[in-house]
């Protein structure tokens, strides 16, 4: 217990930042339309998934290109436990997290035990996510390609995590889950576990020469990572009230998950949240630009898919300017001025 208290002590600065960030994010629903709120909720769901990705790929340095696997397992667990067994999604979220963590441990053990690293590990994670997508696409028990629809509870229902009358609540509950996950990540970064993950990311031989078991560090990272990303997937089901194999396990889901921490700052505490904020603002700006362009750009009005092209272009520019994300860019500038 005293160790936990010491970790909390060491984290006090980050916990204060967290309080500020949560307060600001918590104010969003007060002044926006229902549509903007749903954009913000989606952003937060993928921020949460990115927080999970960042534990394995950012801190422990094992680049995953298939986090849709955990996202989808979380999403389907919530759907199946509710529709088949009438289990509350609260329980479903936790069970989904545990299943995803177990999946991570099993597949991670096989991959790491046989020394998969870098691009090969990334490909393995991609293949595993695709394998799950194809399996669920053909599994009648989970609705195969049609997917699963969550029955409406009607009105606000805390047990079912459905807030038809007060959609802000859905956002705030999610924000609470994000906050708890961030507390966990902050604690990890201040603890021995976080230090061993960083060491393994930087140099496995040096890490083991200092008494670190690299396999164990990676296994810890993959299970925590899978758990958090599965929470995001489970909440996604609750938000859409629907899930199908593409929404759960599709390759674009994996990309959407890893893009946020990469834009915000890989291996930083705040990167995934910052990246999610940047990407959703950017997405909305390009969309509205194409919908209602200024007069000198009339030609682009309503051109199908142009907003996505713009989005992609700006993304490429950002990545060229800041390959280690916005926070990484700031850190490098600070270090340069310090030296």
């Amino acid at each position: 217990m005293s160790r936990l208290r010491r970790i909390a002590q060491a984290s006090s600065r980050d916990l204060m930042i967290l309080a500020a960030v949560v307060t600001v994010l918590g104010l969003i629903p007060l002044g926006v339309s229902r549509f903007t709120l749903s954009v913000a909720t989606t952003a937060l769901i993928f921020a949460l998934a990115g927080i999970g990705w960042n534990v394995l790929s950012g801190f422990a340095g094992q680049f995953s290109f298939g986090h849709a696997a955990y996202f989808g397992l979380g999403a389907y667990t919530v759907a199946v436990t509710l529709t088949e067994f009438s289990i509350s999604p609260w329980v479903g979220l936790i069970v989904g997290g545990v299943i995803a963590a177990a999946f991570g441990l099993l597949t991670g053990w096989i991959s790491f035990r046989f020394g998969l690293k870098g691009a090969y590990f990334a490909l393995a994670t991609f293949a595993l996510a695709e394998m799950l997508r194809l399996t669920f696409n053909n599994l009648d028990y989970v609705g195969a390609g049609i997917g699963i629809t969550i029955p409406l509870a009607g009105g606000d229902d805390w047990g079912r995590i459905q807030f038809e009358d007060t959609p802000s609540l859905q956002y705030w509950v999610l924000l609470g889950i994000v906050a708890v996950s961030l507390v966990a990540v902050i604690a990890i970064t201040k603890s021995r576990l976080g230090s061993t993950m960083l060491a393994v990311r930087e140099d496995e031989d040096a890490a083991s020469s200092l008494g670190i078991n690299p396999l164990r560090a990676k296994m810890a990272a993959i299970s925590i990572s899978g758990f958090i990303t599965a929470l995001a997937g489970g909440y996604y089901t609750q938000f859409l009230l629907f899930i199908d194999p593409d929404l759960a396990f599709g390759p674009f889901v994996s990309v959407a998950i890893l893009l946020r921490p990469i834009i915000g700052g890989v291996g930083t505490i705040w990167g995934p949240v910052l990246g999610a904020a940047i990407l959703s603002v950017l997405g909305e700006v390009t969309r509205s630009l194409v919908r209602e362009p200024p007069s000198f750009l009339q030609v682009i009005e309503g051109v199908n898919g142009l907003d996505q092209v713009l989005f992609g272009l700006i993304l490429v520019l950002v990545i060229i300017r800041a390959p280690d994300g916005v926070l990484g860019w700031f850190r490098r500038r600070r270090q340069r001025s310090a030296v």
């Binding site: 160790r3 010491r6 970790i7 002590q9 060491a10 603890s191 021995r192 230090s195 200092l210 670190i212």
Partner: peptide, 15 residues
């Protein structure tokens, strides 16, 4: 810190 953590799980002690 990576080395210090080996025998000191307490972050302030290892610091």
């Amino acid at each position: 810190m990576v080395g210090a953590f080996l025998r000191r799980p307490d972050p302030l002690e290892s610091e």
